[in-house]
């Protein structure tokens, strides 16, 4: 009856490990149960349409929606700022000039020629 399902749920083995989505599914269900139980233990005093539901920003007034949204450029600001030395180099590499694209191609071809043919 259910023979066709057998090849589907076979485990994918790599040399040193395995992966079976069934295991993942079981873990997923268990963790959801845990979340559900923890959630059930929370307080039940929530009321709609009262002061509870309003935005609270440490007592500061709420700005316009446009100003509240963090744009994409600021999302990993700390990361890009800390690695500025690296990003400056990358930016120098990506000139956008078509001649430089070909120059990289010639350089890589030359490098490979030296390594593989001469040596």
């Amino acid at each position: 009856m259910l023979e066709w399902i057998e090849p589907l749920i076979k485990t994918l083995t790599t040399d040193s490990g395995f992966w079976n989505p069934l295991v993942w599914g079981i873990v997923f269900i268990i963790s959801y149960l845990v979340i559900y139980i923890v959630r059930g233990m929370g307080k039940k005093e929530y009321k709609k349409d009262t002061g509870q539901t309003q935005v609270f920003l440490s007592g500061n007034p709420e700005y316009d929606k446009e100003k509240m949204h963090v744009p994409g450029a600021n999302v990993y600001w700390g990361f890009t700022e800390a690695l500025k030395w690296l990003y400056n180099k990358f930016d120098k590499m990506h000139t956008g000039n078509v001649s430089d694209y070909i120059l990289w191609f010639v350089l890589i071809m030359g490098l490979f020629l030296v390594i593989m043919v001469v040596i």
């Binding site: 929606k65 949204h69 744009p71 994409g72």
Partner: peptide
């Protein structure tokens, strides 16, 4: 985050 989440933008 920057495309789908965040407050509803009027535009």
């Amino acid at each position: 985050y920057s495309v789908f989440l965040g407050p509803k933008l009027p535009k």
